[in-house]
Design a protein around this nucleic acid. Structure first.
Lengths: 147, 147
DNA sequence: TTGACTTGTTAGCCACGGCTAATTTAATTA
DNA sequence: TAATTAAATTAGCCGTGGCTAACAAGTCAA
């Protein structure tokens, strides 16, 4: 029988999202993401990484053959990119706009990035754009919006 | 030996926090929280509730004897109150300040309430106070704070 | 009182996401 | 080349938090 590799679609857990992001970062600068490094970055045992890679492969997000380099597929990469943009933006927002201490901001962002709806993300984004555009927030925030 | 009921301290999972909050709401208006109702509110099977109640009892957050009424202990109640305040504030923030659609705001708040650091919560709170005080946000948000 | 609901609990299953220990594979070096 | 070390995988465990199915206990009506 032809090896029809089943691709699972749909939601992915926060944990798998974190793995994906880590792989994304590690594979910058031409560096290939090795199990060891992924484990180190996520602070988990290597066996946990192996396990996660299998799941990510099943969902078509990474290319993974045992003992070979891990690479992101295009959908894996675009998901990873979206996540890391969320992350970057959220910690910026928390730190620069709200004044949360950098490390805390990063930690909180790391959890928020997995759970916020895209609607909230967009609102947050346009809100900060307004702030940075120097318009102040009055325009925007003093009267609650209605949709 | 005297039945020294071990009380587990420390972190509690988001799921248990949700149970606690539901019990808190259900026990308003003198209504006692019944397993059935908790299950309905959380949209889980009754057996899952039974299970959760045992854990909450072990942690000293609820008083629970099989087939009897569930009540919050004082520490359970204060945790529940804190959570529901977080929830209320977060959905208010998302909806009224950011303009996120009410239902989405509630959903997002429900996840954020379990993960945000108290530092971020405080910042968010004082930020919105400033907004509502009519000072606009310029004062506050144009220049990132330093601690 | 005796069914018949309703409510709750128990038992046993599952997926997830960790872990350790043992093993296999590959790379390096003596 | 042979031995050693490092990297990766496998096997098997654990807790969490769901689920269903089966059973137990009350409650209520006929």
């Amino acid at each position: 029988m032809p090896s029809t590799k089943q691709v699972l679609i749909g939601e992915i857990s926060s944990s798998l999202e974190d793995y994906l992001e880590v792989i994304y970062f590690l594979s910058f600068a031409g560096k290939t993401a090795r199990v060891r490094d992924i484990a180190r970055s996520r602070n988990v045992a290597m066996s946990s990484v192996t396990n996660a890679l299998k799941k990510l492969a099943l969902r078509g997000l990474v290319r993974y053959e045992a003992r070979e380099f891990v690479t992101l597929t295009s959908s894996g990469r675009s998901l990873a990119r979206r996540l890391s943009e969320r992350h970057r933006f959220l910690s910026l927002f928390l730190h620069d706009i709200l004044g949360v201490e950098a490390e805390t901001a990063a930690r909180d962002a790391c959890m928020m990035e997995h759970v916020l709806s895209s609607e909230t993300m967009e609102r947050l984004l346009s809100f900060s754009r307004e702030v940075y555009a120097g318009r102040g927030a009055d325009n925007t925030i003093k009267k609650p919006r209605r949709n």
